[in-house]
Simulated assay, not measured.
Amino acid sequence: MAKAYDVPADILLSRLADILKSENIGKPEWAMFVKTGSHADRPPQNREWWYIRCASILRKLYLHGPVGINDLRIMYGGAKSVGYGGAHHRDAGGSIIRHAIQELEKLGYVEKVAGKGRVVSHQGMKKLDRLASDILDELAVKNPMLKIYS
């Protein structure tokens, strides 16, 4: 069985975002108007960015968990220009990450570990692994050399 780190992240995230959208993960009303952090100049241009961010957070928790909100803020942060000097790192907004994690907890894909942060639950791990296996099987049809990994 393939794991989430065995398949390309862009394919996994787009498929996982479609699954989360079909499972009616909650999208806040303010999601269309908010920037993702102080480093961003404008709100995201992709209308489905909320589902992609939720899928990305789930994948990051799978790969790096247990992870706290502040760690995720650092991961999703970026560089902000400060005049003539070099750019400085700014953390991403915490509200987006908190709301996404709360919605993933409602679906049962994420659980809290006391004092350490959040991890992917057994149900979430199973969903990611099955999706990764399906993607790897589809990629193996195009490239037969990948069959050894499935």
Rank of each mutant, 00 (worst) to 15 (best):
G85W: 05
M32W: 04
M1F: 12
R42N: 11
G26R: 14
N143C: 07
E29C: 00
R118N: 05
S133A: 13
W50F: 02
G85N: 03
L72P: 03
V141N: 07
K21W: 06
Q123T: 04
G83W: 01
Y51R: 00
V110A: 10
I135Y: 10
G124F: 06
N70D: 09
A79H: 01
R118C: 01
S56H: 03
L131M: 15
L128S: 11
A17Y: 09
F33C: 04
A87R: 08
T36K: 05
P43A: 12
S133M: 07
I101G: 12
E105D: 06
E48H: 11
N24E: 09
R59N: 01
S133H: 15
L128I: 08
K142Q: 07
V7E: 11
I97D: 00
A140I: 12
C54I: 05
Y149K: 12
N24T: 01
H89L: 07
M125R: 15
S22N: 09
G117E: 02
I11L: 15
D137T: 12
M75K: 00
W49N: 01
I52C: 00
M145V: 14
Y84I: 15
E23M: 14
D91I: 07
Y84D: 10
I11V: 12
K80P: 01
D6N: 14
S121E: 13
R15M: 08
Y84E: 05
P44S: 08
L136V: 10
K27L: 09
W49H: 07
K142I: 14
A9G: 04
P28S: 06
V82R: 12
K35Q: 10
A40D: 08
R15W: 04
G85A: 03
L20E: 05
K27G: 04
N24C: 04
D91K: 13
I148G: 09
C54D: 14
L12N: 07
M75W: 08
I52N: 00
D18N: 15
E48I: 00
